[in-house]
Amino acid sequence: MTTDVTATGVGTIRSGFLGGGFMAQVHSRAARAAGAITAVLASSTPERGFAAAQDLGIARAAADIAELLADDIDIVHVCTPNATHAELALEVIRAGIHVICEKPLATRAEDARALAAAAEERGVVAAVPFVYRYHPMVREARARVAAGEIGELLTVDCGYLQDWMLRPGDDDWRVTAADGGPSRAFADIGSHLCDLLEFVAGERIARLTARTRRVYDERGGRPVTNEDAVSILVEMASGAIGTLLISQMAAGRKNALTLELHGAHASIRFDQERPEELWVGQREGSRQLFRDPETAHPGVARFSTVPAGHAQGYQDAFNGFVADAYAAIRGDELPDGLPTFQDGVRAAQLTEAVLLAAHEERWVDTPVS
């Protein structure tokens, strides 16, 4: 490894990437924005790795993970299909290299826990990109809830809706358990929604019940083995109750992640497709708050990378996440809100709870600490 993670400081981080698809594009852009050298990439075959490295501007392609790990790198971004995450991330950790692993961290909670334990034992930074935490207005919402501005939490109304799997001919590797895991809609996007709910509310989902739906049994000539949509009833640790709807078949919805919390004094709502805004509702009327580092709650302004009126979006949020992970690698104090492998474990626990609740048609308790 190039860097020496000590209080004396480190040099320029050199980043490696496993996988060459869309997420590798996003990760590599964020790495460059954080000042790293995008050093090496490996994919499922040497040929794919070479093509992806050229397309993404990565310095060189490695034939496989062994060659990649032998390079002079400080961190590996795992951007491969879901079912490969646990095995690849564990190889990175065992090599003593820091890791950012796409979610789901693992398709089984047991494997996710093992990864978190391995990372802690090896002393490496291990992060999962729950990047919606890095929208400035999400941090603003979280700060207002923590300050007691909405009062005691009463109910929540949340959703994550997409339409990219709407038609019978829509297909993706995620539809099979072998590649995507036993859950698709929840593990893929519902995990983001639950992470954001618990992060902003400052409390955990204590119990839940769920129903899942698979609309088409076959896509692309292959049997579909996981769900297209999930509806969930939740009870929070405080006793607040709520509804969550997750679907990859909601016509016209591209990435509609919405979070609405209702408190005894006020309500607050964030919409990822309008990330520069925050809605605040009260009995006397409602108002829209717009991102402005000059009026943000203490500690929130650092997430605004451009002046008010200049829109920030998804890639900016991803850049903020990677910048915090790299700051931790350089030996800084763990940045507030950096999602770690423990958060990946939490997502895996909730995924298993949702599938169990749907299968057995009952309420399932989830860990709150």
Rank of each mutant, 00 (worst) to 15 (best):
G35L: 11
T84G: 02
V10P: 01
G9Y: 03
T84W: 12
V78I: 13
A39P: 02
N82L: 07
A83Y: 12
T38P: 12
G21W: 06
L56S: 12
M23G: 03
L69S: 00
E87V: 15
A59R: 15
V10C: 10
I97T: 11
A39D: 11
D64C: 06
T45A: 12
G16Y: 01
I97Q: 00
S28M: 08
L88W: 06
T80P: 08
V92G: 05
I13D: 00
L90K: 12
T45K: 08
G16Q: 02
L69G: 02
V99L: 00
D4N: 13
A34W: 06
A52K: 00
Q54I: 08
T6W: 04
G16F: 03
S43Q: 03
G35R: 12
G20V: 01
F50E: 14
D64H: 08
I58R: 08
D55K: 15
A34S: 12
E67C: 00
E102Y: 11
S44Q: 06
A89E: 08
D74Y: 05
H27W: 11
A7Y: 06
T6Q: 02
T84C: 10
I93H: 10
R32Y: 14
S43T: 06
F22A: 14
E87T: 14
H85K: 00
D71C: 11
A31M: 09
P81S: 10
S15Q: 06
G57F: 11
Q25Y: 13
L88T: 07
A51L: 14
S43H: 04
F17L: 14
G20T: 06
L56M: 12
I93Y: 10
A95E: 11
H27M: 14
A61S: 14
I13Y: 01
D64E: 07
I75N: 07
R14L: 04
A83H: 13
A70T: 10
T84E: 14
G11F: 07
E67R: 06
I37C: 09
V92M: 03
G11I: 07
A51W: 07
A66L: 09
P46A: 06
D74N: 06
A61H: 07
T8P: 05
C79Y: 04
I97S: 01
D64V: 08
E102A: 12
D71K: 09
L41Y: 03
R94L: 01
N82M: 10
G21Q: 05
T80W: 04
